[in-house]
Design a protein around this nucleic acid. Structure first.
Length: 262
DNA sequence: ATGTCTGGCATCGCCAGA
């Protein structure tokens, strides 16, 4: 069984339903995982995606913030969700394909502006969220699983436009990178994107606040595709669709793709 | 500090979150 999977922080699935349709039409991934849908599940334009062949949707939503969804051409069953750090947020949902592969779709908390949990509650929540992910993976020992999403951390020096200038900026601080690394290690997760693209600067997000995002290229790789070690070797063809960041009224994130031959 | 977006509403201008 072969399939192509994509992950994309859409920053409002209702406002950008036409962009989702365009990606589904032009790139036709078998599975698209969305984050920041910012919509209750019942208001996601599922019929629009259904008409394009995405007849399955598993989603968790809330009013205004967060929200994750998995759109699929392939049959997929709901495999539950977790509310790490007990935030009461819709930040995770899992689906299981007929071949037994589980897909986890995550939206890790952004963590606010100040990288100090004593002064910024949101930063502490982000670290707690990652710690609870780690503990869950330690207990669960996931197999035949894929984890995607906006993890809101750019772990490597070449995942940001300036390692030095971002060391104290939330998303690239050493403590966040350490927490993410522990969660990754606990689940024996392979960073599929970097396994395929090991060299060079690679980003999936460019701030709305920076004009000329393309020329300035002050990006960060916040969006990830991981796979457990048992199936990571079946992955190939990873890529970031940078051009999507240049579409009209875009999300500030570009979609990340990978294919699997299982 | 600034920049730019989003959804929500004690809504038509502001706020929080990112």
């Amino acid at each position: 069984m072969s399939f192509t999977l994509a992950t994309w922080n859409i920053n409002s699935v209702r406002l950008r339903a036409a962009l989702v349709s365009r990606l589904l039409t032009e790139e036709a991934p078998d599975i698209l995982c969305l984050q920041e849908c910012k919509s209750p599940v019942e208001k996601i334009p599922a019929e629009t995606f259904h008409a394009l062949g995405y007849t399955h949707m598993i989603a968790r939503g809330q009013k205004g913030y967060n929200g994750v969804a998995i759109l699929s051409k392939l049959p997929i069953e709901d495999a539950g969700d977790k509310d790490f750090a007990s935030l009461g947020h819709a930040r995770h949902v899992a689906g299981r394909l007929e071949n037994g592969v589980t897909i986890h779709n995550f939206y890790v908390p952004a963590g606010g502006d100040v990288p100090d949990r004593e002064r910024n509650v949101k930063f502490g929540q982000k670290l707690d969220y990652l710690t609870e992910m780690r503990d869950w993976f330690r207990a669960e020992r996931p197999e035949k699983a894929i984890l995607v999403g906006d993890l809101n951390i750019a772990p490597r020096e070449d995942d940001v436009w300036s390692h030095k200038q971002l060391l104290k900026v939330v998303s690239h601080t050493p403590i966040e990178v350490e927490h993410l690394g522990q969660a990754q290690e606990a689940g024996d997760w392979v960073d599929v994107t970097r396994a395929h693209i090991p060299e060079g600067q690679l980003y999936s997000w460019w701030s709305y606040r920076s004009p000329n995002w393309d020329a300035a290229d002050k990006g960060r790789r916040l969006d990830h595709i991981w796979a457990t070690a048992d199936i990571a070797g079946a992955a190939h063809s990873s890529r970031v669709l940078r051009a999507v960041r240049g579409w009209e009224q875009p999300s500030d994130h570009a979609p990340v793709f990978a294919s699997f031959d299982l």
